[in-house]
Write a protein that binds this DNA or RNA. Sequence first.
DNA 1: TATATCATCAACCATATGGTTGAATATGGG
DNA 2: CCCATATTCAACCATATGGTTGATGATATA
Lengths: 109, 109
Amino acid sequence: MPADLDTVFSALADPTRRRILSMLLEDDMAVSDVADPFEMSLAAISKHLVILAGAGLITQEKRGRVKWCKLEPDALRDASIWMQSFGQFEAVNLDAFEAFLERELPSDG
Amino acid sequence: MPADLDTVFSALADPTRRRILSMLLEDDMAVSDVADPFEMSLAAISKHLVILAGAGLITQEKRGRVKWCKLEPDALRDASIWMQSFGQFEAVNLDAFEAFLERELPSDG
DNA sequence: TATATCATCAACCATATGGTTGAATATGGG
DNA sequence: CCCATATTCAACCATATGGTTGATGATATA
């Protein structure tokens, strides 16, 4: 049951949450390791993770006292499809795509 | 100068605004015609249009006393590209796409 | 000119959002 | 058992968001 578009798009609207997602592209992470590079409280990050999980963009699994966060890229599917319905733009230009990632991923996801 | 991802995603997070975008897929529209099918004030719709314009998703041009609204689908490009960076999902399945449009476009865009 | 129409502005309101801090709740290790 | 670690909870705060209404500013038309 995919989260609705409201939930997914508003989850994606926050730069902290997008940055978390891009961190999770590398590997699954514990909550406190997700929080480490941010200059905000662990509680704040914990709330962001709840929002990402509510949107289905991540899942969380507790093992011992550590809660692991895992990216769930499929949750982007419906939103992506929705965007393609406005897709008078041609299929993504791969050069532009790589340049974009180079530019955006390090800081903002 | 494309609007940033924050702006685009939060513009897309509201169902009224997505519905407006799907109406504009059909044709350019005047502000009051956009407002017609909604059960909310013209002023509220006017604010939504300002937000869509701020995200670059539409442009507005005043001719006489009528302000025309036009969809600008290119503004979705960066956001779409960003989403594809999480694109472990394969290229959009066209059957699923059409089913999705059938399901979503009439009410919610 | 007088009047109606198109759209925005300004002030206001309720609720949501994103952050804080300190206490509480597991769980693991010595 | 005792203590440290991992995470969330609860209360709070400032600001943002999405709506309302009534006034206002342009423009078209009789």
